[in-house]
């Protein structure tokens, strides 16, 4: 008899070594997330995937599944609070969807739609951040970075480089690149790097490829992020 957890009352099997997120995804249950991609080491920082495990809040992407866990995911309280966490991500940076090339393909935007986010709720920070367009093929717009570290992990784990890192503390956190000049053009990043394509928002973009897919025909224009996530992301199997 395999081990199981319940998510919102539904019995879900899991393999030893899987997280709650892995088990949920394998069973076709979507838990909102931004800093998590199954092919990378879980990070647990965006906190969108917070679920209640036996009454306690845990990050589904890092918390190991264990036999008999009672997990709450799709509750009014969690949905409302995930929306506020998403709003926090919006106000801390400068996210102007209509003028962003990533619109329609952006996971931050898609999660916001999914959670029915209709305003910013919190006061905007309007931080003064820069755009690094120094590189021939790849650009970084720091205004849109949400510090998910997917590019950091992709560069290290998949590309075998260390192009990106997160530096600073607290609200002063920022993305840095591995070059004395601090500019992308002086790093060994390449447009073929996975790190250049992994950004869930429009912070890292490939140059000269913008608007090739018209707005209206983009990933999230006709599908919700939960469907896309379950169809395209493949959970890790147990050990």
């Amino acid at each position: 008899m395999s081990k199981t957890i319940t998510i919102d009352g539904k019995v879900i099997p899991f393999e030893e070594g899987q997280t709650i997120m892995d088990a949920a995804m394998a069973a076709g249950v979507y838990i909102p997330h931004l800093c998590h991609q199954p092919e990378f080491t879980p990070h647990g920082s965006c906190k969108l995937c917070t679920v209640k495990v036996n009454g306690r809040n845990c990050s589904a992407c890092t918390f190991p599944a264990a036999d008999g866990q009672d997990v709450l995911n799709h509750t009014e309280e969690l949905i409302e609070d995930r929306k506020k966490i998403t709003q926090m991500l919006f106000v801390e940076g400068n996210h102007f969807c209509p003028s962003c090339e990533k619109t329609g393909n952006c996971q931050l935007q898609a999660v916001a739609y999914h959670l029915n986010m209709l305003d910013n709720h919190f006061p905007l920070f309007y931080p003064d951040r820069e755009v690094d367009a120094s590189h021939d093929e790849v650009m970084v717009d720091h205004n849109r970075c949400i510090f998910c570290t997917l590019c950091v992990r992709a560069s290290h784990e998949k590309d075998g480089k260390d192009v990106f890192a997160i530096s600073g503390r607290g609200i002063h956190k920022h993305l840095i690149v591995n070059a004395e000049s601090g500019l992308l053009k002086d790093t060994d990043v390449a447009a073929t790097d996975q790190a250049a394509h992994i950004c869930p928002t429009g912070a890292i973009l490939i140059k000269r490829t913008g608007y090739q897919v018209p707005i209206g025909q983009r990933i999230y224009d006709h599908q919700q992020i939960d469907q896309v996530s379950l169809a395209t992301e493949h959970p890790k199997h147990g050990e």
Binding site: M88, P123, G170, I171
Partner: peptide, 21 residues
């Protein structure tokens, strides 16, 4: 707390600054 937040997670990084504001 806003000064000392490490900035790793959203609720604390943004939240402590919002509390301060």
């Amino acid at each position: 707390f806003a000064h000392e937040s490490c900035g790793f997670c959203t609720p604390c990084r943004v939240g402590t600054s919002l509390l301060q504001k």
